[in-house]
Design a protein around this nucleic acid. Structure first.
Length: 510
RNA sequence: GCCCUCGUAGCUCAGUGGAUAGAGCACCGCCCUCCGGAGGCGGGUGUCGCAGGUUCGAAUCCUGCCGAGGGCGCCA
């Protein structure tokens, strides 16, 4: 591995002479390395990764898009780095909303009406909104709903039966959306709020035994130090409400306890929107005090901003409702299909598959290319543009490279001598050698957008090379030709691997 | 009221202490008989929200202010 020190060099450009000397070896070695020089973690850790987390009895909407995309990408990156990742989908399948839904169901006289056709997710979506309005407007109903939650949490048979129907129907819907979106979550990854129900009592007991709780206004609370409200009073995590029900805070505390203690995870990640930053800071602080997060454990809230429209406000349908995820993804694929049809060498059958890769890739890349902490502007034309920093650009660039390799009629071999004569050849190789550093930075900051920047820079570097260095031209000597084919192959490998780590497919042809 | 995040070119965004602050899009001119145009070159882009401070050096760190969004006890 004589080229090791080259790509380990921390200052790009400072090792030009060394690079010139060993550059051909470096490039040739990349050809046979499926990791493109990136090391495997010396001390692998076990990550519990909370992402997506839709709500039962509601259709998935744009609000779940970022968590699903970002969480999936980070999971892929961590696995690539050699870590173990246990994804868990924290379904909103428990708590006050279900008291409300079940109570409304009973009010409407639907309880016990076992007609599966009736309980489609669309119906439940509307049903949820009706129940919500009643809950907000009718004090008596709200009270009954809260009591119904307690019954549900106490395993009341009638309540549980209705609840199971809601969960089963919802899960089918989630899996259909995940399949469309192409993310790795399955039914096995579901650890909804209800899953932690059996642990809540123990968690509260443990907090009390450690003297971390106080009773305030009838509620059992934990007051992690350093958090205050508008009056300067300490902020509570309510673990048991005045009515005896458990607060949502204790569920999050129980997840920390479960994943570190029962599953031996060393790192807890939560891909959840930025507004919950303070909540998680409090949960983590309290968990440290409770001893559920040890010295060597980490817990990180991977926060992200909102998806906004051109007006800077959260995107909504014309009617003012939230945009359904299934409809948004279908539109992405339709738009991609129209773009692919303009310039393609594929038949109709192949196009459908490519349209999916392009459409879904566009949505994912648009989300991942910006610093996740910030809001980003959702714009169909921009995310599906053939020029600029988009998924289609990378996919097309890759398809073109593969086209050249097919046309070449020869497969670059590992022992091929790589000649770096032209400045653009050297620049491309330097860029390819930066892969390990790029991956490291992406993982350290849980910052997928840095990988997007890297991939775009790689495509740009190839473009400059391609412009100045003919590969298949008759005037290109055989030795130079095979050398340049190596660079083309490694570039394609890099783009393909990078996109796959982001959850984006790289079709062979467009 | 307190706290958090954000404010960089006309637009979308990189850049979080080191050189004249960078891309893409959009605009203008020129060039390329090009492996599937993912084109190339030039033009100009900037009070890095404002004002102080720390530093040899600040878009980056600190303080205050302005603006946008969000959070602040029984919703998750």
């Amino acid at each position: 591995m004589t080229w090791w020190p080259v790509w380990r060099s921390p200052v790009p450009g400072s090792s030009t002479s060394r690079c010139t000397m060993s550059g051909w070896q470096a490039a040739a070695a990349l050809l046979g390395d499926t990791r493109l020089g990136a090391p495997v973690a010396e001390r692998p850790r076990r990550f519990a990764l909370d992402y997506s987390s839709p709500n039962v009895a509601k259709e998935m909407h744009v609000g779940h898009l970022r968590s699903s995309i970002i969480g999936d990408a980070i999971g892929g990156l961590l696995r690539f780095a050699g870590h173990e990742v246990v994804p868990h989908n924290h379904l909103g399948d428990w708590g006050t909303p279900f008291g409300m839904l079940i109570e409304h169901l009973i009010d409407e006289g639907w309880a016990g009406a076992r007609d599966p056709a009736r309980h489609t997710i669309t119906d439940l979506n509307n049903f949820y909104q009706a129940a919500r309005q009643k809950f907000d407007a009718d004090e008596a109903f709200a009270g009954r709903a809260r009591r119904r939650v307690v019954l549900l949490q106490g395993a009341d048979e009638r309540a549980l039966g209705l609840w199971h129907e809601l969960v089963a129907e919802s899960t089918r819907h989630f899996e259909a959306v995940y399949d469309l979106l192409g993310i790795e979550l399955t039914g096995e990854d579901i650890y909804g709020e209800s899953f932690y129900n059996p642990f809540l009592g123990d968690a509260v007991d443990e907090l009390e035994a450690k003297g971390l709780t106080e009773v305030s206004d009838g509620a059992v609370c934990v007051f992690p130090p350093g958090f205050t409200n508008r009056e300067g009073d300490r902020l509570p995590l309510i673990v048991r409400k005045r009515d005896g029900g458990y607060g949502y805070a204790v569920t999050d505390l129980a997840t920390v306890r479960y994943w570190t203690r029962e599953r031996g995870c060393t790192d807890l990640l939560y891909a959840v929107g930025a507004p919950q930053a303070q909540h998680f800071a409090m949960i983590f602080e309290a968990s440290r005090h409770a001893g559920w997060l040890g010295e060597d454990d980490s817990a990180v809230h991977i926060g992200f901003g909102s998806i906004v429209g051109a007006d800077g406000k959260t995107i909504r349908t014309r009617a003012g409702g939230s945009v359904k995820l299934a409809e948004l993804l279908t539109e992405a694929i339709d738009r991609a299909a129209a773009i692919v049809a303009e310039r393609t060498e594929l038949d109709a059958a192949e196009r459908a598959e490519v349209a999916r890769a392009v459409g879904i890739g566009a949505v994912k890349y648009a989300d991942l290319r910006n610093d996740r902490e910030k809001d980003y502007v959702f714009d169909w034309d921009r995310m599906l543009a053939m020029d600029g920093n988009t998924a289609v650009y990378l996919q097309y660039a890759n398809a073109r490279i593969l086209s050249i390799l097919r046309k070449a009629g020869e497969v670059p071999g590992e022992g091929t001598h790589v000649v770096l004569r032209e400045p653009t050849e050297r620049a491309l190789v330097l860029q390819l050698l930066r892969w390990p550093a790029a991956v490291r930075a992406v993982i350290e900051g849980y910052a997928p957008h840095k990988l997007c920047t890297y991939l775009y820079d790689t495509a740009t570097a190839f473009s400059a090379f391609y412009e100045n260095c003919p590969i298949l031209a008759a005037s290109t000597p055989a030795e130079i030709r095979s050398s340049r084919l190596v660079l083309a192959q490694v570039t394609s490998n890099s783009l393909t691997l990078g996109m796959s780590l982001l959850g984006i497919r790289a079709p062979q042809r467009l």
